[in-house]
Design a protein around this nucleic acid. Structure first.
Length: 342
DNA sequence: TTTTGCATCGAGGGTTGC
DNA sequence: GCAACCCTCGATGCAAAA
Protein backbone atom coordinates (compact mmCIF):
# COMPACT_ATOMS: atom_id res chain seq x y z
CA UNK A 1 0.00 0.00 0.00
CA UNK A 2 1.91 2.98 -1.19
CA UNK A 3 1.84 5.91 1.06
CA UNK A 4 1.76 8.93 -1.07
CA UNK A 5 1.67 11.45 1.64
CA UNK A 6 4.16 11.62 4.39
CA UNK A 7 4.33 14.27 7.00
CA UNK A 8 7.91 14.84 7.78
CA UNK A 9 8.95 15.07 11.32
CA UNK A 10 8.91 18.54 12.59
CA UNK A 11 12.20 20.28 12.58
CA UNK A 12 13.11 21.14 16.09
CA UNK A 13 13.80 24.76 16.43
CA UNK A 14 13.21 27.43 19.02
CA UNK A 15 9.73 28.62 19.33
CA UNK A 16 8.30 25.42 18.17
CA UNK A 17 6.56 22.82 20.11
CA UNK A 18 9.01 20.06 20.67
CA UNK A 19 7.17 17.27 22.34
CA UNK A 20 10.18 15.08 22.61
CA UNK A 21 11.61 17.44 25.13
CA UNK A 22 8.82 16.67 27.50
CA UNK A 23 8.07 13.52 29.33
CA UNK A 24 5.23 11.98 27.48
CA UNK A 25 2.98 11.99 30.45
CA UNK A 26 3.32 15.73 30.66
CA UNK A 27 2.63 16.51 27.07
CA UNK A 28 -1.06 16.43 27.45
CA UNK A 29 -0.83 18.92 30.25
CA UNK A 30 1.36 21.29 28.43
CA UNK A 31 0.16 21.29 24.93
CA UNK A 32 -1.74 24.27 23.76
CA UNK A 33 -5.14 23.15 22.75
CA UNK A 34 -6.74 24.60 19.73
CA UNK A 35 -9.54 25.91 21.76
CA UNK A 36 -7.41 28.32 23.68
CA UNK A 37 -6.40 30.01 20.54
CA UNK A 38 -9.08 32.49 20.09
CA UNK A 39 -10.99 30.97 17.30
CA UNK A 40 -10.78 34.24 15.63
CA UNK A 41 -7.07 33.86 15.37
CA UNK A 42 -7.09 30.57 13.69
CA UNK A 43 -10.22 31.18 11.87
CA UNK A 44 -9.21 34.54 10.73
CA UNK A 45 -6.10 33.27 9.23
CA UNK A 46 -7.74 30.30 7.74
CA UNK A 47 -10.99 32.10 7.54
CA UNK A 48 -12.06 31.28 4.08
CA UNK A 49 -11.52 27.68 4.98
CA UNK A 50 -8.38 26.06 3.88
CA UNK A 51 -9.96 24.70 0.81
CA UNK A 52 -10.57 28.18 -0.42
CA UNK A 53 -7.68 30.05 1.01
CA UNK A 54 -5.14 27.49 0.14
CA UNK A 55 -5.03 26.42 -3.38
CA UNK A 56 -5.02 23.37 -1.62
CA UNK A 57 -1.80 21.96 -2.06
CA UNK A 58 -3.57 19.03 -3.36
CA UNK A 59 -1.87 19.46 -6.58
CA UNK A 60 0.60 16.95 -7.60
CA UNK A 61 4.09 18.18 -7.11
CA UNK A 62 7.31 16.49 -6.67
CA UNK A 63 8.88 16.88 -3.31
CA UNK A 64 11.27 19.32 -4.80
CA UNK A 65 8.35 21.40 -5.82
CA UNK A 66 7.56 21.85 -2.21
CA UNK A 67 10.59 23.88 -1.72
CA UNK A 68 9.66 26.26 -4.39
CA UNK A 69 6.53 27.17 -2.56
CA UNK A 70 7.90 27.73 0.83
CA UNK A 71 6.92 31.26 1.27
CA UNK A 72 6.94 31.79 4.91
CA UNK A 73 9.63 29.87 6.62
CA UNK A 74 12.33 30.79 4.22
CA UNK A 75 11.06 34.25 3.73
CA UNK A 76 11.10 34.75 7.42
CA UNK A 77 14.59 33.54 7.63
CA UNK A 78 13.63 30.62 9.74
CA UNK A 79 15.37 27.35 9.45
CA UNK A 80 13.89 24.55 7.62
CA UNK A 81 14.12 20.94 8.31
CA UNK A 82 17.38 19.44 7.29
CA UNK A 83 15.87 17.65 4.41
CA UNK A 84 14.67 20.91 3.08
CA UNK A 85 11.07 20.04 3.27
CA UNK A 86 8.85 21.71 5.77
CA UNK A 87 7.74 20.00 8.88
CA UNK A 88 4.55 20.44 10.75
CA UNK A 89 5.88 23.34 12.66
CA UNK A 90 6.65 25.10 9.46
CA UNK A 91 3.05 24.91 8.71
CA UNK A 92 2.01 26.28 12.02
CA UNK A 93 4.59 28.96 11.97
CA UNK A 94 3.45 30.01 8.61
CA UNK A 95 -0.07 29.92 9.73
CA UNK A 96 0.59 32.12 12.67
CA UNK A 97 2.61 34.49 10.66
CA UNK A 98 -0.36 35.06 8.50
CA UNK A 99 0.53 33.10 5.47
CA UNK A 100 -0.69 29.62 5.48
CA UNK A 101 1.68 27.16 4.07
CA UNK A 102 0.41 23.82 3.11
CA UNK A 103 2.32 20.89 1.92
CA UNK A 104 1.79 20.31 -1.69
CA UNK A 105 1.90 16.60 -1.87
CA UNK A 106 -1.25 15.11 -3.09
CA UNK A 107 -2.69 11.92 -1.88
CA UNK A 108 -2.97 9.64 -4.79
CA UNK A 109 -4.61 6.40 -4.06
CA UNK A 110 -5.60 3.87 -6.53
CA UNK A 111 -6.95 1.35 -4.13
CA UNK A 112 -5.77 -2.14 -3.62
CA UNK A 113 -5.77 -4.10 -6.73
CA UNK A 114 -7.24 -7.50 -6.49
CA UNK A 115 -5.01 -10.32 -7.51
CA UNK A 116 -5.21 -9.75 -11.15
CA UNK A 117 -3.44 -11.81 -13.74
CA UNK A 118 -3.44 -8.81 -16.02
CA UNK A 119 -2.07 -6.00 -13.94
CA UNK A 120 -2.47 -2.49 -15.12
CA UNK A 121 0.44 -1.11 -17.06
CA UNK A 122 2.92 0.75 -14.92
CA UNK A 123 2.53 3.84 -16.98
CA UNK A 124 -0.99 4.65 -16.09
CA UNK A 125 -1.92 8.25 -16.60
CA UNK A 126 -1.96 10.15 -13.37
CA UNK A 127 -5.07 10.60 -11.38
CA UNK A 128 -6.67 13.82 -12.53
CA UNK A 129 -5.31 16.84 -10.82
CA UNK A 130 -7.94 18.26 -8.54
CA UNK A 131 -9.69 21.25 -9.77
CA UNK A 132 -9.97 24.27 -7.50
CA UNK A 133 -13.66 23.74 -7.32
CA UNK A 134 -14.59 20.54 -5.60
CA UNK A 135 -16.25 18.12 -7.81
CA UNK A 136 -19.16 16.08 -6.73
CA UNK A 137 -17.95 12.72 -5.57
CA UNK A 138 -19.04 10.86 -8.58
CA UNK A 139 -17.67 13.40 -10.94
CA UNK A 140 -14.36 13.24 -9.22
CA UNK A 141 -14.02 9.61 -9.85
CA UNK A 142 -13.19 9.81 -13.44
CA UNK A 143 -11.15 6.78 -14.22
CA UNK A 144 -7.50 7.50 -14.49
CA UNK A 145 -7.18 5.64 -17.69
CA UNK A 146 -9.01 6.93 -20.71
CA UNK A 147 -11.34 4.03 -20.58
CA UNK A 148 -10.75 1.06 -18.44
CA UNK A 149 -12.28 -2.04 -19.68
CA UNK A 150 -13.33 -4.70 -17.26
CA UNK A 151 -10.78 -7.28 -16.46
CA UNK A 152 -10.83 -10.16 -18.84
CA UNK A 153 -12.09 -12.44 -16.15
CA UNK A 154 -15.08 -10.28 -15.49
CA UNK A 155 -18.30 -11.22 -17.14
CA UNK A 156 -19.77 -8.63 -19.45
CA UNK A 157 -22.70 -8.15 -17.16
CA UNK A 158 -20.48 -6.40 -14.69
CA UNK A 159 -20.63 -3.25 -16.65
CA UNK A 160 -24.36 -3.31 -16.73
CA UNK A 161 -25.49 -1.46 -13.74
CA UNK A 162 -28.94 -0.79 -12.45
CA UNK A 163 -30.34 2.67 -12.53
CA UNK A 164 -28.96 4.81 -9.81
CA UNK A 165 -25.75 2.91 -9.70
CA UNK A 166 -22.65 4.97 -9.82
CA UNK A 167 -20.91 5.36 -13.09
CA UNK A 168 -17.93 3.66 -11.61
CA UNK A 169 -19.57 0.90 -9.76
CA UNK A 170 -21.24 -2.23 -10.81
CA UNK A 171 -22.55 -5.26 -9.02
CA UNK A 172 -21.36 -8.63 -10.03
CA UNK A 173 -23.83 -11.36 -10.63
CA UNK A 174 -22.76 -12.79 -7.30
CA UNK A 175 -23.76 -9.63 -5.54
CA UNK A 176 -20.33 -8.16 -5.11
CA UNK A 177 -19.76 -4.58 -6.12
CA UNK A 178 -16.86 -3.66 -8.28
CA UNK A 179 -15.03 -0.40 -8.48
CA UNK A 180 -14.73 0.43 -12.10
CA UNK A 181 -11.60 2.41 -11.46
CA UNK A 182 -9.48 -0.24 -9.83
CA UNK A 183 -11.62 -3.34 -10.23
CA UNK A 184 -11.62 -3.94 -6.53
CA UNK A 185 -14.66 -5.78 -5.31
CA UNK A 186 -16.78 -5.17 -2.26
CA UNK A 187 -19.47 -7.14 -0.60
CA UNK A 188 -21.64 -4.14 0.14
CA UNK A 189 -22.63 -1.12 -1.82
CA UNK A 190 -21.76 1.17 1.06
CA UNK A 191 -18.24 -0.19 1.11
CA UNK A 192 -17.89 0.54 -2.53
CA UNK A 193 -19.43 3.96 -2.17
CA UNK A 194 -16.87 4.87 0.38
CA UNK A 195 -14.06 3.27 -1.51
CA UNK A 196 -14.93 5.31 -4.54
CA UNK A 197 -14.09 8.40 -2.53
CA UNK A 198 -10.54 7.15 -2.41
CA UNK A 199 -10.31 7.84 -6.08
CA UNK A 200 -11.71 11.26 -5.62
CA UNK A 201 -9.44 14.20 -5.01
CA UNK A 202 -12.09 15.95 -3.04
CA UNK A 203 -11.55 15.59 0.66
CA UNK A 204 -14.51 16.55 2.75
CA UNK A 205 -12.79 16.93 6.09
CA UNK A 206 -10.09 19.54 6.17
CA UNK A 207 -7.56 20.12 8.86
CA UNK A 208 -7.78 23.68 10.09
CA UNK A 209 -4.09 23.61 10.92
CA UNK A 210 -2.61 22.55 7.66
CA UNK A 211 -5.47 22.24 5.24
CA UNK A 212 -4.91 18.61 4.54
CA UNK A 213 -8.05 16.84 3.62
CA UNK A 214 -9.41 13.51 4.69
CA UNK A 215 -12.31 11.39 3.66
CA UNK A 216 -13.21 10.43 7.16
CA UNK A 217 -13.77 12.43 10.32
CA UNK A 218 -11.82 9.94 12.31
CA UNK A 219 -8.85 10.27 10.01
CA UNK A 220 -9.02 14.00 10.47
CA UNK A 221 -9.34 13.75 14.21
CA UNK A 222 -6.43 11.40 14.35
CA UNK A 223 -4.40 13.71 12.18
CA UNK A 224 -5.22 16.76 14.28
CA UNK A 225 -3.55 15.12 17.22
CA UNK A 226 -0.29 15.49 15.39
CA UNK A 227 -0.85 19.23 15.66
CA UNK A 228 -2.25 19.38 19.16
CA UNK A 229 0.09 16.90 20.72
CA UNK A 230 -2.67 14.96 22.37
CA UNK A 231 -1.37 11.50 23.16
CA UNK A 232 -4.14 9.51 24.72
CA UNK A 233 -2.46 6.14 24.66
CA UNK A 234 -0.07 5.91 27.52
CA UNK A 235 2.24 3.05 28.27
CA UNK A 236 1.59 1.79 31.75
CA UNK A 237 5.15 0.59 32.08
CA UNK A 238 7.18 3.59 31.09
CA UNK A 239 4.84 6.55 30.84
CA UNK A 240 5.50 6.97 27.20
CA UNK A 241 2.48 8.11 25.31
CA UNK A 242 1.27 7.76 21.77
CA UNK A 243 -1.28 9.29 19.52
CA UNK A 244 -2.47 6.00 18.22
CA UNK A 245 -3.30 2.76 19.85
CA UNK A 246 -1.32 0.70 17.42
CA UNK A 247 1.75 2.71 18.24
CA UNK A 248 1.28 1.93 21.88
CA UNK A 249 0.70 -1.72 21.22
CA UNK A 250 3.74 -1.85 19.02
CA UNK A 251 5.74 -0.14 21.72
CA UNK A 252 4.49 -2.54 24.36
CA UNK A 253 5.36 -5.48 22.23
CA UNK A 254 8.79 -4.36 21.14
CA UNK A 255 10.01 -2.56 24.22
CA UNK A 256 8.31 -4.40 27.01
CA UNK A 257 7.61 -7.67 25.26
CA UNK A 258 4.02 -7.37 26.31
CA UNK A 259 1.63 -8.68 23.76
CA UNK A 260 -1.88 -7.75 24.53
CA UNK A 261 -4.29 -10.57 24.32
CA UNK A 262 -6.59 -9.48 21.63
CA UNK A 263 -8.06 -11.54 18.91
CA UNK A 264 -7.61 -10.41 15.39
CA UNK A 265 -9.74 -7.35 14.87
CA UNK A 266 -11.10 -7.62 18.37
CA UNK A 267 -12.33 -4.32 19.64
CA UNK A 268 -10.35 -2.81 22.44
CA UNK A 269 -11.88 -1.05 25.37
CA UNK A 270 -13.18 2.24 24.19
CA UNK A 271 -11.15 5.14 25.39
CA UNK A 272 -12.81 8.50 25.74
CA UNK A 273 -10.35 11.22 24.97
CA UNK A 274 -10.62 14.85 25.83
CA UNK A 275 -9.15 16.52 22.81
CA UNK A 276 -8.89 19.70 24.83
CA UNK A 277 -6.21 18.44 27.14
CA UNK A 278 -5.53 14.86 26.29
CA UNK A 279 -7.22 13.52 29.38
CA UNK A 280 -8.59 10.07 28.92
CA UNK A 281 -11.63 8.55 30.50
CA UNK A 282 -12.97 5.07 30.61
CA UNK A 283 -16.55 6.09 30.20
CA UNK A 284 -18.39 8.83 28.46
CA UNK A 285 -19.90 9.98 31.74
CA UNK A 286 -16.47 10.39 33.16
CA UNK A 287 -15.40 12.39 30.18
CA UNK A 288 -18.46 14.60 30.42
CA UNK A 289 -17.75 15.26 34.07
CA UNK A 290 -14.21 16.14 33.16
CA UNK A 291 -15.41 18.52 30.50
CA UNK A 292 -17.91 20.12 32.83
CA UNK A 293 -15.30 20.74 35.45
CA UNK A 294 -12.36 21.75 33.31
CA UNK A 295 -13.67 22.66 29.90
CA UNK A 296 -17.15 24.00 30.41
CA UNK A 297 -16.94 25.79 27.11
CA UNK A 298 -16.05 22.65 25.27
CA UNK A 299 -17.71 22.26 21.93
CA UNK A 300 -18.59 18.74 22.88
CA UNK A 301 -20.70 19.92 25.73
CA UNK A 302 -22.29 22.54 23.59
CA UNK A 303 -22.97 19.98 20.96
CA UNK A 304 -24.53 17.64 23.43
CA UNK A 305 -26.69 20.42 24.77
CA UNK A 306 -27.72 21.38 21.29
CA UNK A 307 -28.61 17.85 20.43
CA UNK A 308 -30.65 17.50 23.57
CA UNK A 309 -32.43 20.63 22.59
CA UNK A 310 -32.82 19.28 19.10
CA UNK A 311 -31.32 22.42 17.79
CA UNK A 312 -29.62 22.79 14.51
CA UNK A 313 -25.93 23.07 14.17
CA UNK A 314 -25.27 20.40 16.70
CA UNK A 315 -22.19 18.45 15.94
CA UNK A 316 -22.61 15.03 14.58
CA UNK A 317 -22.88 12.25 17.09
CA UNK A 318 -19.61 11.27 18.51
CA UNK A 319 -18.00 14.47 17.51
CA UNK A 320 -16.45 16.72 20.01
CA UNK A 321 -15.96 20.21 19.11
CA UNK A 322 -12.77 21.86 19.93
CA UNK A 323 -13.04 24.62 17.51
CA UNK A 324 -16.13 26.27 16.35
CA UNK A 325 -16.94 25.67 12.76
CA UNK A 326 -15.71 28.51 10.73
CA UNK A 327 -17.27 27.64 7.49
CA UNK A 328 -20.22 25.73 6.22
CA UNK A 329 -17.88 22.96 5.33
CA UNK A 330 -16.54 22.76 8.79
CA UNK A 331 -19.91 23.05 10.33
CA UNK A 332 -20.91 20.24 8.13
CA UNK A 333 -17.91 18.14 8.67
CA UNK A 334 -17.99 18.40 12.41
CA UNK A 335 -14.92 18.20 14.50
CA UNK A 336 -11.39 18.80 13.94
CA UNK A 337 -10.75 18.42 17.53
CA UNK A 338 -11.69 15.08 18.43
CA UNK A 339 -14.39 13.23 20.04
CA UNK A 340 -15.11 10.97 22.83
CA UNK A 341 -14.23 8.22 20.54
CA UNK A 342 -11.55 5.60 20.97
C1' DT B 1 25.34 1.00 6.81
C1' DT B 2 21.92 -1.49 9.11
C1' DT B 3 18.57 -1.93 12.64
C1' DT B 4 15.12 -0.35 15.62
C1' DG B 5 11.36 2.37 17.28
C1' DC B 6 8.16 5.79 16.39
C1' DA B 7 4.99 8.70 13.71
C1' DT B 8 1.76 8.93 10.38
C1' DC B 9 -1.93 7.75 7.41
C1' DG B 10 -4.72 4.82 3.84
C1' DA B 11 -8.37 1.97 3.76
C1' DG B 12 -11.52 -1.99 5.09
C1' DG B 13 -14.85 -3.45 8.45
C1' DG B 14 -17.86 -2.79 12.57
C1' DT B 15 -21.11 0.22 15.11
C1' DT B 16 -24.40 3.78 15.83
C1' DG B 17 -27.79 7.35 15.02
C1' DC B 18 -31.16 9.40 12.10
C1' DG C 1 -31.51 1.49 5.08
C1' DC C 2 -28.06 4.65 4.79
C1' DA C 3 -24.56 7.71 6.09
C1' DA C 4 -21.54 8.98 9.48
C1' DC C 5 -18.66 7.66 12.99
C1' DC C 6 -15.28 4.77 15.01
C1' DC C 7 -11.79 1.07 15.24
C1' DT C 8 -8.24 -1.68 13.49
C1' DC C 9 -4.59 -3.46 10.52
C1' DG C 10 -0.85 -2.75 7.91
C1' DA C 11 2.42 -0.07 5.18
C1' DT C 12 5.92 3.39 4.83
C1' DG C 13 9.28 7.01 5.96
C1' DC C 14 12.21 9.27 9.26
C1' DA C 15 15.50 9.68 12.93
C1' DA C 16 18.32 7.82 16.30
C1' DA C 17 20.96 4.10 17.88
C1' DA C 18 23.91 0.24 17.13
Amino acid sequence: MPRAFLVKKANVSPGKRNWSELPDHERGDVYIPVSIFPNSVLMTEVEASPAETVPLCLTKHSSSDNHAQLPSSTALGQPRSPSGSPGRSDIRRSLHSGSLYVRSKMKVTTGKLPPDPTPLPPTLPPIPIPSPQPLPPQAAVVPAAPKQTPAPSEPPSMVNRPAGQSQNTAPTPAGAFVCQVCQKTFQFQRMLNRHVKCHSDTKRHLCTFCGKGFNDTFDLKRHVRTHTGVRPYKCSLCDKAFTQRCSLESHMKKIHSVTLKYAYKERRNKLYVCEECGHTAGTQDELVRHLHSLHPDSQLLKGKAARRAGGPGAPAPGSVGGSAPSSPREADSDDTNGSAGQ
